[in-house]
Simulated assay, not measured.
Amino acid sequence: MKNTVETRLAELGITLPDAPAPAANYVPYVRSGDLLFVSGQVSMKDGGFVTGRLGAELSVEQGAAAARLCALSLLAQVRAACEGDLSRLKRVVKLTGFVNSTPDFTDQPKVINGASDTLVEILGEAGRHSRSAVSAGALPFNVAVEIEGIFEVF
Rank of each mutant, 00 (worst) to 15 (best):
I14H: 00
A64V: 13
D117W: 02
T4R: 08
V78N: 07
A76L: 08
L95H: 07
A144G: 08
A138C: 12
V143E: 04
R31L: 03
M1F: 05
A133G: 13
L123K: 02
P17K: 03
R79I: 09
L86M: 08
L35W: 02
S116R: 14
D34E: 09
K90L: 09
A71M: 07
R91K: 15
D18S: 10
E57S: 15
E121N: 14
L35C: 01
C82S: 06
V120S: 01
T15A: 05
L35G: 01
A21E: 15
L123R: 02
G127D: 05
I14Y: 00
S101V: 03
A24N: 07
R128P: 01
L95F: 09
A67Q: 10
S39L: 01
M1A: 10
E146T: 09
L89R: 14
Y26H: 08
T102R: 12
D85G: 01
S132N: 09
E152S: 12
L119W: 05
G33R: 05
G124E: 02
G84P: 04
A66H: 06
V111F: 07
S73T: 05
L54V: 12
L74K: 10
L95N: 07
L123E: 05
F151G: 04
Q41K: 09
A136L: 06
L9P: 14
P103R: 12
A138G: 12
L89M: 13
V143C: 11
A21V: 13
D85R: 05
T96C: 11
E146Y: 01
T51Q: 11
L89E: 06
G137V: 10
S73N: 09
S73I: 01
S101Y: 03
Y26N: 04
K2A: 14
S101F: 03
A136T: 08
E61Q: 13
L74A: 07
Q77I: 00
P22K: 11
L123W: 03
V111N: 07
G137L: 11
V60Q: 03
